[in-house]
């Protein structure tokens, strides 16, 4: 069953990469990459890294791809894509939600408090790499401020 799921995700990644490389429209490339990133999150979950898979889905397939899509719309000058693109977006959104639900169900069924991935990862980070963790938060803050300064219109 896990093998079958892996090969389905493999095919989704392959197809998404093909569309990404050969599509001429930026929006189509971005939407195909949403499928690639969400399938990759599924692969991480299948490898046993359920927390990382969920994070990949939420951050990459969710936040990063949406930010890219907004810039793609800015580049193309259209406020929204065509009908096929809208359906593709609905399909990607539904599959993403389904996949996140499957990952959460899987991790809930196999959950053991002592081995919870987020708990282990959090303790590991805070015990061994506290300064790196704090530096990363500083980096994110700097990135947010610098992007706001960059995008600001000068009067």
């Amino acid at each position: 069953m896990l093998n079958l799921a892996f090969w389905v995700l493999f095919l989704i990644i392959l197809g998404g990469l093909g569309i990404f490389l050969f599509s001429r429209r930026e929006e189509r490339s971005v939407v195909s990459l949403a499928a690639v990133f969400s399938a990759l999150g599924g692969v991480f979950a299948l490898m046993g890294y359920t927390f990382l898979g969920a994070i990949y889905l939420l951050i990459y397939a969710g936040a990063v791809v949406v930010a890219f899509l907004m810039v793609a719309w800015l580049v193309s000058g259209r406020s929204q894509g065509g009908r096929s693109l809208r359906w593709a977006f609905v399909f990607v959104f539904l599959s993403l939600t389904l996949e996140l639900g499957l990952i959460l169900t899987y991790s809930h069924l196999t959950f053991k408090k002592a081995q919870a991935p987020a708990l282990k990862l959090g303790s590991f980070f805070l015990q061994n790499y506290l300064y790196v963790f704090e530096l990363t938060s500083l980096l994110i803050l700097t990135a947010v401020i610098s992007s706001l300064v960059l995008i600001r219109r000068e009067k």
Binding site: I59, V64, A67, F125, T136, I140, A143, S146, L148, L150
Partner: peptide, 23 residues
Amino acid sequence: QAAVLAILTVAAAEVAVALAALA
């Protein structure tokens, strides 16, 4: 996992700055 999480965070920050520059 910790390394991948750190890479992911840095990549997300990089994307925020790069998209602002692109805009």
